[in-house]
Amino acid sequence: MPVLARVIEGLGIPTVTVTMMPDVAQKLRLSRVVGVEFPFGYSFGMPGDEAMQLTVARAAVQALAEAGAPGYRLDVALQWPVPTEVAYKEWQPTEPSPIVAMLLRARQPQPPPSS
């Protein structure tokens, strides 16, 4: 997304990126960043929480309107309503995709060639 933001802005279209990783986004030097302290998979908030989603959307358009220089950052002061140790648990698919399974197999030590 940072690559895209820079390409699109470079063509003359103002962009804003809403991100769970505002520190990283800032290091990648984007024009406008809206930071949210939400887990991956929830850029705009909790499912069914329209007020929360609307707050993030308002922050995004506010950033578009008020940023006066590149590197603008606006953090949304909403705390995730689930304890972080629960919300930020790591997630992996229970079954790897065929391509991933192939890559994982390729990383296994190969048996010595039989003579």
Binding site: V7, I8, L11, I13, T15, T19, F40, S43, A60, V61
Partner: peptide
């Protein structure tokens, strides 16, 4: 591909949403 669509649609602003 994306940029072409945005130009064709004559958007004034873009909102990018990663996950």
């Amino acid at each position: 591909a994306l940029v072409q669509r945005l130009i064709d649609e004559r958007v004034d602003i873009a909102l990018l949403v990663p996950v």
